[in-house]
């Protein structure tokens, strides 16, 4: 596996919600070799604060030269990133990690996104669409404004189902309620999920009970992103330590939950 460190110029920044934006970065080496589910480590500031790089999933690549990120502002680092002007360059390290696996002869799949968890799933969706896999996409969040990429998934020809906790869009309730119906109908060979840890666990357990293979993309704190600090440890059911940046971020749900 190979990764690169390169200065990436901000080509475009587009807010898609009050606290969420798309960032297009020019970095051909990373863009050309990125696979769905992989991520980059971005140095949001050249100074000492914040010190560490921030991990972001690759949301899409364009013309093998641009890496697109979908970022939600949650703290200092993402706020700084949101304020960087086009034309500014920041250091990116990537593509990193083990991405999504697409089994041979996959006919249909279900993508489950919680909030900003849609970020890696769109890049995956693009790859699945290219292989002719038919997908249902379940997008969930607190309220309508949290639901992202709906049109983009529809443009890939996928059926998109929505759930919000306040009922402001789609079904009122959890995105996992939508998954229950799909698993029951036995209409899905593979589940892919990204979102909050609690949601992933519910998805993982549901998929297991329905005997559907499930891959989840994990988020942990990360210092290096390349397997050297050993800070991103996740305990698997066997007791073996997994490193989210190297063994993941995408792992089989069966490894994590009984």
């Amino acid at each position: 596996m190979s990764y690169f460190q390169q200065p990436a110029k901000i080509i475009e920044k587009t807010f898609v919600g009050p606290d969420t934006f798309l960032l297009d970065l020019l970095c051909p080496d990373i863009a050309a070799s990125a696979r769905p589910g992989q991520f980059v480590m971005a140095r949001v500031d050249e100074g000492l604060s914040p010190l560490l790089r921030r991990p972001f999933s690759i949301h899409n690549t364009i013309d093998k030269s641009l890496v697109r990120l979908l970022v939600k502002i949650v703290g200092q680092g993402t706020r700084i990133l949101s304020g960087l002007p086009t034309g500014h360059s920041l250091s990116l390290l990537g593509p990193l990690g083990h991405g999504f696996e697409i089994p041979q002869n996959l006919k249909n799949a279900c993508l489950v996104a919680g909030g900003i968890g849609v970020a890696p799933l769109f890049f995956l969706g693009k790859a699945l669409a290219a292989k002719g896999v038919s997908c249902k996409v379940l997008v969930g969040g607190q309220r309508a404004a949290d639901l992202l990429c709906i049109r983009e998934f529809e443009e890939l020809g996928f059926e998109v189902l929505l759930a919000t906790q306040d009922g402001s869009a789609g079904d009122k309730g959890m995105v996992t309620d939508l998954l229950a119906d799909i698993l029951e109908a036995n209409s899905c060979q593979q589940v892919y999920a990204c979102g909050p840890q609690a949601m992933l666990k519910v998805v993982g357990v549901m998929a297991r009970n329905a005997k559907a293979p499930c891959q989840v993309s994990l988020e942990t704190v990360m210092a290096c992103g390349m397997g050297v600090c050993l800070g991103c440890a996740v305990k698997s059911v066997s007791g073996k330590i997994l490193h989210a940046c190297k063994d993941g971020p995408v792992v089989d749900a069966d490894l994590l939950w009984d």
Partner: peptide, 17 residues
């Protein structure tokens, strides 16, 4: 196999591990 997570946290101009 080391310690269970959480293993690292960023601090002002540094980190704890």
């Amino acid at each position: 196999s080391g310690n269970p997570p959480v293993r690292i946290v960023e601090t002002p101009c540094g980190m704890l591990n």
